[in-house]
């Protein structure tokens, strides 16, 4: 691989866009493919599915062996709410390889003392998301219970195609949330993608256990992208 190609790949990933490094296995020569670029007809299908599911793969086409190396941006987890669950979820997600950000306008919660060495923003999601828009490589977990803080972030996450959108709250709280979002014009299909109650059903009891259930659900969503529902 040429150094110029490596730099191009890293710049695209930093800009939160996925690329594929397409190489001819026999010769080792390769090039960087961006989403939507025109490629050899035989490779169109494999390139499209590799972008969709994020999986690198070897394919045979036009009598040659090609390697499609998917170079995706670092998955990001935006946690809305600097609460007790987040104090466990943020460092766990960081270890699991996520770029983690915690956002909460309540300065009593969003203190560096409670979240050492983590990216923490004591701002309203409305303000913070203007500078740092969400994207399809981002997961959003809203855990404040407070519609004033959670609602905007959740609707933005649905609008920008976040690969995971989770919301803390009982079924009753969530039913009310869906009512508000429906009135705001979000389709039922979109709303059905919100994971609520948040987290995998592992009977988590403590905040740290709930954090494990949320992180497992986020990883499940990340690794299931582009896979048909029937296979999940």
């Amino acid at each position: 691989m040429e150094i110029a190609a490596l730099r191009a790949i890293n710049r695209e990933r930093e800009a939160r866009r996925a690329v594929i490094y397409l190489s001819d296995v026999a010769t080792g020569s390769g090039r960087v493919i961006r989403e939507g670029d025109v490629v050899e007809a035989e490779l169109t299908g494999p390139v499209r599915s590799a972008f969709a599911n994020g999986k690198s793969t070897l394919v045979e086409a036009a009598g040659r062996e090609w390697f499609l190396s998917v170079c995706a941006p670092e998955p990001r987890l935006v946690i809305v709410g600097a609460v007790h669950i987040s104090q466990a979820l943020a460092p766990m997600a960081h270890i699991a390889g996520f770029d983690v950000v915690v956002v909460d306008p309540r300065t009593a919660f969003a203190t560096p003392e409670r979240f050492p060495d983590l990216r923490l923003h004591a701002e309203w999601p409305e303000d913070w998301l203007r500078q740092q828009p969400l994207d399809p490589y981002t997961a959003l977990a809203a855990v404040t219970h407070d519609p004033k803080i959670d609602d905007f972030a959740l609707t933005e996450a649905l609008r920008t195609g976040c690969f995971y959108v989770g919301a803390l709250g009982s079924r009753r709280t969530h039913a009310k949330r869906l009512e508000r979002f429906g009135e705001a014009g979000l389709s039922a299909d979109r709303l059905a993608t919100i994971r609520a109650p948040i987290g995998l059903p592992i009977r988590a009891a403590s905040p740290a256990e709930i954090a494990v259930s949320i992180l497992a659900e986020v990883i499940g969503a990340l690794r299931s992208r582009g896979i048909e529902e029937t296979e999940v």
Partner: peptide, 12 residues
């Protein structure tokens, strides 16, 4: 830090 675990970033 997660950057220190990213091979393509380390390579550069």
């Amino acid at each position: 830090s997660s950057e220190t675990l990213d091979p393509l970033g380390i390579a550069e």
